[in-house]
Amino acid sequence: MRIGAHVDATDPLAEAKARGADVIQFFLADPQGWKAPKPREDAGALRDSDVDIYIHSPYVINVATGNNRIRIPSRKLLLAHARAAAEVGAKGLIVHGGHVNAGDDIESGFDNWRKAFAYAEAEGGFPVPVLIENTAGGDNACARRFDMLARLWAALDGYEVGLCLDTCHAFAGGEDLVGIVDRVKGITGRIDLIHANGSKGGFDSGQDRHENFLRGEIDPELISEVVSSSGAPAVCETPGSAEDQAADIAYLRERLP
């Protein structure tokens, strides 16, 4: 099984080596900004590397919202990042599930997700798999509670869409990690990537605050069980130094078949 970490984008292959990572995830642009990614000089090296590459889209993207000044730029930026991810040989592009504004019908968020995929299809399609990630907080979120995730997947029926399961987000979002892989696969039919994270916040706290495995509120054995039973590659988005992340990677490797 392939295990790795989220790393700085300056020299991601060097960061992978420092952690002994099989997989790396990084941003192609400012995660808090709206600028499209620029071509990378190391694109060829990334494509040719034995390290698996995943790209995380900017946090500002929210294709579910009814606010057109956010929704329309979001779907355009998502497609731009998917195209840039293909240039570096990425196996997938991760994007958060998004939310609607307070007072808006959550069904409109699911329909806006459908429109985002329809828009991309009309523009030639996403060149890499788009992996929707479950989120930790918000009462108007499209992918916090798994009953909402099921409605989102129903809205996207007919489109090729993948799932990234984040252990911190699930725990802080109020979803029990025991048996979570079977529950998620019962909804989506797939798990493409695990974000293997401990949690600073407690169960159902709604706090998106990652922690290293041995310091957080989640039993670390549960995290390794999720990774093992999923059969998917795992990315540690845990805090600290390369050594801290390497310790989390090693923890998983010691416990995986």
Rank of each mutant, 00 (worst) to 15 (best):
F203P: 04
K115F: 07
T188M: 09
P129F: 02
G206E: 06
A116L: 09
G174P: 05
G173L: 11
T135I: 15
L177P: 00
E160G: 03
N101A: 15
F171W: 15
G138F: 12
G189M: 09
F171L: 06
A154Y: 05
G198Q: 06
L149A: 12
V161Y: 00
G137D: 08
G125Y: 11
I187G: 11
G138H: 10
G124E: 12
V128A: 07
C168F: 07
F171R: 03
R151A: 14
G162S: 12
V130S: 08
M148Y: 13
Y119W: 13
I106Y: 01
H169M: 05
L163E: 00
D157S: 15
A143I: 04
A118P: 09
G103W: 04
L149C: 04
A102S: 14
N101C: 07
G137S: 15
I106F: 02
G201D: 04
A170L: 11
T135S: 10
F110L: 00
R144N: 01
F110V: 00
V130F: 08
R183D: 04
L156M: 13
G158P: 01
S205C: 11
V178C: 04
G189S: 13
D176N: 15
V181I: 08
F117N: 02
F117I: 05
W113D: 11
S108M: 15
D105E: 13
A154F: 03
L156G: 12
A141F: 05
V178S: 13
D147N: 09
F146S: 05
R145E: 09
N197E: 09
G173Q: 08
G137A: 14
S108T: 14
D166H: 00
F117L: 11
A154Q: 14
G206Q: 08
W113L: 09
L156S: 13
G179R: 09
D104C: 00
P127L: 12
I194E: 06
I132V: 15
A196I: 02
G125Q: 11
L165H: 00
D105S: 06
T167W: 06
D204R: 14
G103H: 04
I180D: 06
A196P: 03
A150T: 07
D176G: 03
L131V: 02
E160I: 05
Y119P: 08
G179S: 08
L177G: 00
L156W: 09
S205E: 11
R151V: 06
T188S: 14
H195P: 07
H195G: 05
A141C: 13
A102G: 12
D166E: 05
E121P: 03
H169Y: 05
V181E: 01
T135H: 02
K200D: 04
L165C: 01
S199R: 00
N112Y: 02
A122I: 05
G125A: 11
I187K: 10
D176S: 09
D204M: 10
I106C: 01
G173N: 09
W113I: 08
I191W: 00
S108G: 14
G125H: 12
V184H: 01
T135G: 02
G158W: 04
